[in-house]
């Protein structure tokens, strides 16, 4: 896993980032906007993959971490007029703290029980958002006004509602998280996470406190998902309870499965693929969800390891 081809792996990842950068100058406006959104949501998928792909813990509640970031950033900007960096930090901190608390409780279980417990917590989180509608806007959500979405850096100011600024901000976040993820999975810690996924009992007998390692992974995963949510609030200006619904816990699971579980680039590919399948099919028929469902079933049947997982298995064994 981690000894082979470090140069190749880093070159590939930097190449993907360079490609996304170049695309900003050639894409038509519609796809430009869509890709910015996809990059932010791919960060959500990367956070999910950290736990699901590398540690083997299937959560059905990650919408709560995304929403913790979304509301953590959105509400502080909206109600308290916090600056963009402070609001982003608030979102990140909310996600990390929530993940720590949920991890301490949910990691007492595993397997199906873990799925159910995380789903229940996420449902509670969703209901809390609806309950405090006076603050959160309930199921209507809140629109963060344009003047609040200006990033002031010294004397310069960047308007996050400007398409190019928004695209580049999304790319910056995506790049940082991609490289951090790559570094983690290639590190000693990443090796321990994979060992836990493969055989937790054996990992304990090699001197590892597997509970602490899993808890750290939940926090890292939650923080990455929260970063995605916080960026979403600040870049797209909408904070809504639908992002906390169970649908947004299932989506990252699908994106990761499609792109390739436990691959660093799979989350991007899965998110991209799903968005464009929906986009293309909804142009032809109102029954597009049926087509999406069929596409998903075919993928799972013929590419059970996802797009990138299959490529890794058949051709490029060195892919991280």
């Amino acid at each position: 896993m981690s000894e082979a081809s470090p140069a190749k792996a880093y070159a590939l990842h930097l190449g993907v980032i360079a490609l996304l950068f170049a695309l900003s100058f050639v894409l038509p406006a519609y796809h430009h906007g869509l890709l910015a959104r996809i990059m932010v949501l791919a960060v959500f998928a990367m956070g999910y993959n950290m736990l699901f792909g590398y540690v083997g813990l299937l959560s059905l509640g990650h919408a709560m971490f995304f929403s913790a970031g979304l509301y953590g950033a959105g509400l502080t900007v909206y109600h308290f007029g916090w600056s963009v960096p402070a609001a982003f930090a608030a979102g990140l901190a909310c996600g990390a703290l929530l993940a720590l608390a949920i991890g301490l409780l949910a990691l007492r279980t595993s397997g199906v029980a873990f799925m159910i417990v995380t789903m229940m917590f996420a449902q509670v989180f969703y209901l809390v958002i609806l309950y405090f509608a006076a603050w959160t806007g309930g199921d209507q959500g809140l629109v963060v006004p344009q003047p609040a979405r200006i990033l002031v850096l010294g004397s310069a100011s960047l308007d996050l509602t400007n398409p190019t600024v928004r695209y580049m901000s999304a790319l910056a976040l995506f790049s940082i998280v991609l490289l951090v993820t790559l570094a983690i999975v290639r590190s000693r810690y990443g090796r321990v996470l994979v060992a836990i996924r493969e055989n937790e009992g054996r990992t304990k007998m090699l001197g590892y406190d597997t509970f602490s390692n899993k808890l750290a992974a939940v926090v890292v995963s939650g923080a990455i998902c929260a970063a995605s949510g916080a960026a979403y609030a600040l870049l797209f200006g909408y904070v809504g309870s639908s992002f906390a619904s169970v649908q947004y816990s299932i989506l990252p699971l699908l994106w990761v499965l499609l792109g390739g579980i436990a691959t660093t680039l799979g989350p991007l590919i899965g998110t991209l693929f799903m968005y464009y399948v929906v986009d293309v099919t909804s142009g032809y028929t109102s029954a597009y969800l049926l087509i999406v469902g069929i596409a998903l079933i075919l993928l799972v049947l013929f590419f059970p390891k996802g797009i990138l997982g299959t490529i890794r298995q058949r051709w490029l064994g060195w892919l991280p």
């Binding site: 896993m1 090796r191 060992a195 493969e198 009992g201 054996r202 590892y208």
Partner: peptide, 20 residues
């Protein structure tokens, strides 16, 4: 026998080495 079947022999031994 309970080695990590899906990991390389190298990674199997790297786990205890990095622990020490």
């Amino acid at each position: 026998t309970s080695v990590f079947a899906n990991l390389t022999a190298y990674d199997n031994v790297a786990l205890p080495v990095q622990r020490t």
